[in-house]
Design a protein around this nucleic acid. Structure first.
Length: 416
RNA sequence: GUGAGUGUAGCUCAAUGGUAGAGUAUCAGACUGUGGAUCUGACCGCUGCGGGUUCAAGUCCCGUCACUCACCCCA
């Protein structure tokens, strides 16, 4: 009989790593709270149709990566592979467009994709993200992008690259794809086998090919920036201009595409050199048609999602917070009652307290106090109990003083 | 889905095809009212799992599972 392991692609998070997660989650709530974003928590599973309609039937995510199952009433449900579609669904379902202002959300939680695990990629992974339902103003794009980069900087993640592109809209993208396909078709004899297949399925991906010959050829292919409709072109220019007002450096990447079909106009990605192959820290863009397509009002939207595992990889140097732990040691089981009561009082005063219930001698208890990094060890023994006091030893300085119980709390407050 | 590498004690790692070991951690003692050091001792393994070859397999072969990394995809 073999022991049960966590399913492939899932992981347990515990100390010391969990401290980085707590730090990250607190930072998200603090930072986006200041921008008046409100947290939204949507179900971990939804009707499968939400994702196939929202993300796009033809996307890799929907085709290959969804955890889809049937429940007892034969409904097709899917563990959410991303959260934008759910947030839009919730906003429509509760008519938040009229009830809540401003329409800015953030979320934190697990997502699920059936992928082959590797560095920074898991089957259950965590994203935080933001969604802004608003008008189509390019300044909103810039503000969302700024917040993402600024947030990373505040976390201490500064060595990142912001890449930016416009993926057009239903008015201009189809025409561009046609031009691109034609260009690729003309050179198909010189392309690798993979890329020839992509001409039909996803011509934009030819730009990503690592083969030297292909990337050289692709460099001469038309880019979408030259084929945007006037509206998209103006919008994109305004986004870039606003970003420069904000002093946000970015790299124009005319070949940047997003994996989900709902994106229109602005698309962006923040990558890190420290992550290996899965180098995207966060990615997002504008989705001006999604809300309407899912049955809501004709309202524009923009957002991004960040991979929390990938952020935590950058935060692992963070020292765990060290609370001032008090260790209560008893020289003899006779004083356990005093120890228990002392611990109760101290905890009610807000101190983190560990009581050792089974050690036979003080030496072992001090050793244990040392191991859990206690700041003070409080000794209860015959003398102390008789005098209504406790001996407090500062573990760092080795100083020890005997303090009457009634003065203990005040003393602790004065001796951090 | 494709490919490569790795699976030995809680952890980090050894072991020409020939008795499974070390360091560290843990526990106990030296040391019965005081920690970090030192010394002594103890515990610790179906060598991922299942087959095969062999007198003999941790070691070689096949399969499988897991992990890691890359392709792919993406956060």
């Amino acid at each position: 009989m073999s022991a049960i392991q966590a399913p492939k692609g899932t992981r347990d998070i515990f100390a010391p790593e969990v401290h980085a997660w707590q730090h990250l989650e607190a930072a998200i709530r603090d930072y986006y709270g200041r921008y008046l974003y409100q947290e939204i928590r949507t179900p971990l599973f939804e009707h499968s149709e939400l994702f196939s309609r929202g993300i796009g039937e033809q996307t890799e995510v929907v085709q290959k990566e969804m955890y889809t199952f049937r429940d007892k009433a034969d409904r097709s449900l899917t563990l959410r592979p991303e959260n934008t579609a759910s947030v839009v669904r919730a906003a429509i379902e509760h008519n938040l467009f009229e009830a809540l202002a401003p329409l800015r959300f953030f979320y934190i939680g697990p997502m699920f994709r059936y992928d082959k695990p590797q560095k920074g990629r898991y089957r259950q992974f965590h994203q935080f993200g933001v969604e802004v339902f608003a008008d189509d103003a390019p300044q909103v794009d810039a503000e969302v992008i700024f917040s993402a980069v600024d947030f990373l900087r505040r976390l201490g993640i500064a060595q990142v690259q912001l890449e930016l592109n416009s993926v057009g809209c239903p008015n201009c993208r189809p025409a561009y794809l046609k031009v691109l396909r034609q260009a690729a078709q003309d050179r198909s004899a010189d392309l690798c086998e993979d890329c020839r297949r992509k001409i039909d399925s996803n011509p934009l991906r030819i730009f990503d090919c690592k083969q030297h010959a292909c990337s050289g050829i692709a460099a001469s292919f038309p880019v979408i920036g030259d084929h945007l409709c006037p509206e998209c072109r103006e919008h994109f220019a305004a986004v870039r201009e606003t970003l420069s007002w904000m002093n946000v450096p970015f790299l124009l990447n005319p070949r940047l595409v997003r994996g989900l079909d709902y994106y229109t106009k602005t698309a962006f990605e923040v990558t890190s050199g420290q992550l290996g192959a899965q180098n995207a820290l966060l990615g997002g863009g504008r989705y001006n048609d999604l809300i309407r397509e899912l049955g809501g009002p004709d309202m524009a939207g923009i957002g991004f999602a960040a991979g929390m595992e990938r952020l935590v990889l950058h935060l692992e140097h963070l020292a765990a917070p060290r609370p001032k732990v008090l260790f209560v040691a008893t020289a003899d089981p006779r004083w356990l009652a005093h120890a228990v009561q002392l611990a109760q009082v101290l905890r009610s005063e807000g101190h983190p307290v560990y009581v050792d219930y089974q050690s036979k001698n003080l030496k072992k208890q001090f050793k244990k106090a040392d191991r859990i990094a206690a700041a003070f060890t409080l000794v209860l023994a015959e003398d102390e109990v008789r005098d209504g006091a406790v001996s407090v030893k500062n573990m760092a300085t080795q100083e020890q003083v005997k303090i009457p119980l009634k003065d203990l709390n005040a003393w602790l407050k004065q001796n951090p």
